[in-house]
Amino acid sequence: MRFLVGATVALLTLTLVVHPLLGGGVLWDLGNAIGLLALAGVLTLFAPGQFPRTPRRHQQLANAVLLMLLAHALWFPLTDAASHVYLLPGAPTYMWLGVAGFVVLLVAWQLSLPGSRQRWHASPASFRRWHRRLGMLAIILAAGHITLSGFYLGSPWQAAVFMVLVIAAPLLARSITPRLTDSGAPTVTQTVSVWLLACVAFVALRNLA
């Protein structure tokens, strides 16, 4: 739970550093907040306490993250007709990185289901190794999607700190295990509550201030 709150606060704070009150409108900011929070969710999936102690919560959080990513992807073409071209050939690189990140997470999710896990992996260790690799790849692709789009990370140092943060967080997560396992993995209710609060804060600050 603390990891989820920490990742959420860190990611959103970093996007607010340069122009905290500057928004692109409620619809754009809400759609992007959903995407950023989904990334915080992916980072949390790496947090200790998630697995193997509470595999069910890990799976539930993964489901919530995938639904958030789907909502993020559907949001823009549904609310702004012109943005559907960003899902077609000719779209900028950062959009293809986002699509690729989503596909990699879908593959990681599918391969982790009981039937697939035994079919594709020789051992539990092999499964965990490839599951983490796919997760890291998805994080790197998502980080490229966010930084290259430049919507909230306009300055180079912001983008650099963001990249370091999202790549280091899963790698460092295991080294700080003892302090974080106490709080355990977040439940779906806790996750949704944090996301709702963060969404409202992000959108309200940028549009009502």
Binding site: L74, A81, L87
Partner: peptide
């Protein structure tokens, strides 16, 4: 969950190809 994700991905592809179902300006390349 698999059915929801599959429906979502199909909806995403349909949106990409066909555009938003809401009325209004629908610019195309």
């Amino acid at each position: 969950m698999r059915a929801v994700l599959l429906a979502g991905v199909i909806a995403l592809v349909a949106l990409a190809v066909l555009g938003s179902p809401w009325p209004g300006e629908h610019p195309e390349r």
